[in-house]
Every structure is written in C-alpha cells, then in structure tokens.
Amino acid sequence: MQAQTSLAAQSSRWTMRDIITLAIFNVVMLILMTIAPIITVVSHLLVGGFTALLNGPIYMVMSNKIAKPGTLFFTAVLTGLYFVGFGYANYLLTLAVIGLICELILWGKGSYLHPVRNAISYSVFYVGYSLCGVVPLIFFRESYLATLEKSYTPEQLSAMLYYFETPSMILLMCSISFVGGLLGCYFGNLLMKKHVKKAKLV
C-alpha cells in the first residue's frame, strides 16, 4: 500500500538530478560493456548475455532511482552514441528503435518500479544490443562491412559473419542475451532488497 502511494505521488517530469543519475550509471554500464567482450574472449554468442548479466544490477538500481518514462530509451540512445564514437553509426538507429519498443513494454505510470515488466524490457534491450551486429548487414551491408574490415582480420570477420548471418546462431545469441538480462535484473532486485533500499539509496 505504501508503494502504491509513492507511485501516485511520483512526478514523471525529469529533474537535473535524474539526468545526472542517468549519466553516471550509464558511464558505469558502458565501461562494463567494453570490458565484457574481453572477458568472454570475444564470443559473439555469450557477450550480449554476459554484459546483460553484469549490467542488470546497475540498471535496476538506476531505473528504480529515476523511475520515469524514457529511462531505458535514453539509455539505449547513450549506448548508441557510444558506438557512433567507434564508427558504428548504424548501431544508434537499431538501439533507438529497440529503446522505443522497451518503452512501449513499460507503458504506464510506475512501470519502472514493477520488477517483472522492468526485467522484460531490459532483456529486450539486450536482445537489440545483440542484433546491432545483424541489422546493419541487412540494411547497410557494404558500408558496415567496410567499417568492420578496418578493425578485424579476414579470419575474425569470417567468424563474426558466421554468427551474425546464421539464423540458428542469431536465435541462440538473442536467447542468451534475454536470459542474461533476466538473471541480471533478478540479482539486481535481490541487491536492492538486501542492501540498496536498506541504505535508502532508492
């Protein structure tokens, strides 16, 4: 009952504090997103799920702290802009669309404080993250391959294309990302119940 009261009293208007919170937490998540491929030895099947697992607790704290529409969309856009800096401009479009889909999943007041819906939308976001290597091959193949050739050897590129162009591998990769997202949010909820809320950080 107390949670329902806090939901009703909560404003959907963003404040400077919300923007700063979004920026700080996203910097941390982007750092982990950069480290994850190194830990997983650039396994294209595992990297999305592993990253989602690592970032899940951080995301859950951030989204519960802000708890306003647009939190996941802005996270998607910031992630896309990060990849634009590395020359992968097409990722921004893919992630922005996925961010909008996630916001539709979270449509309604107080949805960010609903652990199941929040976990599902976060997991969908990481499915989109995994598809960032697939979508450009469909719509921007030549320019995308030209960008990849600058960063990968022919052998590495051939292995990458196997995962990003084989339907069964794409499905498996997205499934792993989705499950990783759910597990990350599960651990994030445990963290909040045991430590974060007790410390009154959310």
Rank of each mutant, 00 (worst) to 15 (best):
M1K: 10
Q10G: 04
Q10N: 11
W14P: 08
R17W: 01
D18H: 01
I19Q: 03
M29C: 12
L30Q: 13
P37L: 03
I38Q: 09
V41W: 11
V42E: 15
G48F: 13
G48K: 10
L53P: 06
G56I: 07
P57K: 14
P57Y: 09
Y59K: 02
N64T: 14
N64V: 08
K65T: 06
K68D: 02
T71F: 00
F74C: 12
T75C: 05
V77K: 07
Y82E: 03
V84K: 04
G85Y: 11
F86S: 11
G87W: 01
A89Q: 12
N90H: 07
Y91K: 00
T94L: 06
A96Q: 09
V97Q: 00
L100C: 02
I101E: 00
C102Q: 06
E103A: 00
I105T: 09
I105Q: 06
L106H: 00
L106K: 06
G108I: 04
G108A: 07
G108R: 07
G110R: 10
Y112F: 04
Y112C: 05
H114M: 14
P115S: 05
R117C: 03
I120S: 06
S123W: 01
S123Y: 05
V124M: 05
V124R: 04
P136C: 02
P136Y: 00
F139S: 11
F139N: 05
R141Q: 10
R141E: 08
S143Y: 02
S143A: 12
Y152E: 06
Y152P: 03
T153L: 03
E155F: 01
L157M: 14
Y162E: 13
F164N: 15
E165L: 14
P167C: 14
S168D: 11
S168F: 07
L171F: 14
M173Y: 08
S175L: 11
S175H: 08
G180R: 01
G181Y: 01
L182I: 09
L183I: 15
G184T: 07
C185S: 15
Y186E: 01
G188Y: 12
M192H: 07
M192E: 14
K193A: 15
K194C: 06
K198P: 10
L201F: 06
